[in-house]
Design a protein around this nucleic acid. Structure first.
Length: 115
DNA sequence: CGTGTGACACGTA
DNA sequence: TTACGTGCCACAC
């Protein structure tokens, strides 16, 4: 078992993280390996908040979930984490458009939501 | 209660 | 193709 992000997040302080944070992290966790969702996709799926809110949550709690599966709509890798993300993508077989710099092949990597 | 700030999205040049 | 402006929405000051 994979320890859940919530374990630490909820126990992190006197006041538990907002439900919104909970939902965002849950959404990120259910993205299958080899697939990705954009910040906007998650925001739309939650029907709450926007892409920037999702990004904000991931920036703070991303370390507890597969953050590399949540990407920008243009397919560019997260600045400052390109190598880390790339390693995961290659390991999971996530569709990439090799080049310089390498980018995600959003057309094929984007998860339609069906497991 | 106004202003600034983001791991964003999208249209336009 | 990249760069910039505008819209967006929750949150800290």
């Amino acid at each position: 078992m994979s320890p859940e992000y919530g374990t630490m997040a909820r126990m992190a302080g006197p006041t538990r993280v907002s439900d919104y944070t909970d939902r965002v992290l849950s959404a990120a966790e259910r993205i299958p390996p080899g697939r990705v969702l954009t910040y906007g996709d998650i925001a739309a799926g939650l029907a709450e908040g926007g892409p920037r809110q999702v990004g904000g949550v991931l920036s703070r709690y991303g370390g507890a979930v597969p953050w590399w599966r949540v990407v920008r709509a243009d397919g560019r890798l997260l600045p400052g984490h390109e190598q880390r993300a790339l390693a995961h993508y290659r390991a999971e077989g996530t569709p990439l458009r090799d080049g310089d710099p390498p980018r995600l092949d959003m057309r094929r990597a984007r998860w339609d939501g069906t497991p």
